[in-house]
């Protein structure tokens, strides 16, 4: 885990912007695999869960379930302004609240959406903190 974290990604009613930037981390310009970070589809394989977006009522139980599926020693990073505070959607009528109201969050990445560099930096910082 300390050397090569596997990450998984859940879109909790985000507008897509953060998800694009997470995907962009994989591509040749940023290429997180050179740092040993692998994006896995299944949360069961993952050490770190990236959650983007403000959680709505439909998503709340799914997000809890996805979090529950992860093995022990799990960490959550909330990506983007929506994940931190709700962003422009905090007043939406069907919102269950930002990510930390639903599952415990270890790190926040600000931005709308954050740049791929800052997402990679957040993962690196998280690993630094573990040592």
């Amino acid at each position: 885990m300390k050397r090569s974290p596997w990450i998984s990604h859940y879109n909790a009613s985000s507008c897509n912007g953060c998800d694009l930037e997470i995907l962009a981390c994989l591509t040749p310009r940023y290429d997180v695999e050179r740092l040993g970070i692998v994006l896995r589809e299944s949360p069961r394989h993952a050490d770190i869960l990236l959650v983007s977006g403000v959680v709505n009522m439909q998503n709340k139980d799914r997000l809890k379930r996805v979090y529950g599926q992860m093995a022990k020693d799990k960490y959550v990073i909330a990506i983007g302004a929506c994940g931190i505070s709700g962003g422009p959607f905090h007043e939406g009528w069907n919102m269950a609240g930002p990510v930390d109201k639903v599952i415990p969050v270890d790190m926040y990445v600000p931005g709308c959406p954050p740049r791929p560099e800052s997402i990679i930096n957040a993962i690196a910082k998280l690993l630094e903190g573990l040592e």
């Binding site: 985000s14 507008c15 709505n56 959607f89 939406g92 959406p113």
Partner: peptide, 27 residues
């Protein structure tokens, strides 16, 4: 799963603020 009620958020906002929210419909 991705419904955020954007149209409802528009209501009661100034036209210039709506431009900002409208952009957040999709990334």
């Amino acid at each position: 799963y991705v419904h955020r009620g954007v149209e409802k958020i528009f209501e009661g906002k100034d036209v210039q603020k709506v431009l900002y929210v409208a952009e957040r419909v999709c990334g």
